Simulated assay, not measured.
Amino acid sequence: MENEQLTGAATEGLGIDETAPVISRHSVTVHAAAETVWLFLTDIDAWTTWLPELSYARVETPGPIGPGSVFRWSVSGLDIVSTIAEVRPYERLVWSGHANGPDGILGVHVWNLAPGDGGLLVSTEESFAGPPVDADPDSVQAALDESLATWLQRLKDTAETDAPPSR
């Protein structure tokens, strides 16, 4: 499937904005079942239990997450409103959102899970655009790289050592 660009709210089948000034890609092998990793990744209300950098995270749309589901979360002083664009259970999750309002950072985040050599390959990529990014792309790039690397390591550690959240 060709990776299409996303310049606004995410819609199904779309990926990160390849023209954004900041793009980060990371992956890790996790020694846990895709179902376990998926449960941690998609239980947004429980993110703060394994991502201490988050002040809060909560789904605002009733029912199971799916395209159009909205969630709010806060990390590193950024208040973010995100909308789920694509859900392929145990394989792919895509969302987009604005940090600190529409004049803030527009982030598009893609997660992929796939069988790999010796475990489950979990990869993530994210694009950032908007005036705050344009003002200091080098600092924003470093912050996003660190954030995604930390998030992946915490997901790996949690999935390999903790019981998945109950659904």
Rank of each mutant, 00 (worst) to 15 (best):
M1P: 10
M1L: 14
N3C: 15
Q5W: 12
L6I: 12
A9N: 12
E12I: 09
L14H: 14
G15E: 02
I16G: 01
D17P: 02
E18P: 07
A20T: 03
A20P: 01
V22R: 08
I23C: 13
S24I: 08
V30L: 02
H31I: 11
H31P: 02
T36Y: 06
V37H: 03
L39S: 14
F40I: 09
D43S: 15
I44T: 13
I44P: 03
I44F: 12
D45V: 00
A46C: 13
W47F: 10
W50C: 04
P52N: 02
L54W: 15
R58C: 03
V59I: 13
E60H: 05
P62T: 02
P64L: 12
I65W: 01
P67L: 02
G68E: 00
G68L: 01
S69H: 03
F71I: 07
F71P: 01
R72V: 07
W73S: 09
S74K: 15
S74L: 05
V75F: 13
L78N: 13
L78K: 15
L78Q: 14
L78T: 12
I80H: 11
I80L: 13
S82H: 13
T83V: 15
T83F: 06
V87T: 06
R88C: 14
L93M: 11
L93C: 06
L93Y: 13
V94I: 06
H98S: 12
A99D: 10
N100M: 06
P102T: 12
D103W: 15
G104W: 08
G107A: 15
V108A: 05
V108H: 07
V108P: 04
V108F: 03
H109Y: 06
H109A: 03
W111T: 01
L113T: 03
A114G: 06
G118C: 00
G119F: 00
L120G: 00
L120R: 00
E126Q: 10
E126W: 05
S127M: 05
A129H: 07
G130A: 04
P131Y: 02
P132E: 07
V133I: 10
A135K: 08
A135C: 05
S139G: 12
A143K: 08
D145L: 09
D145M: 09
E146D: 14
S147W: 12
L148I: 14
L148G: 12
A149H: 11
W151N: 10
L152M: 07
L152V: 07
L155V: 09
K156Q: 08
T161S: 11
D162P: 11
P164T: 08
P164V: 09
P164G: 09
P164Y: 09
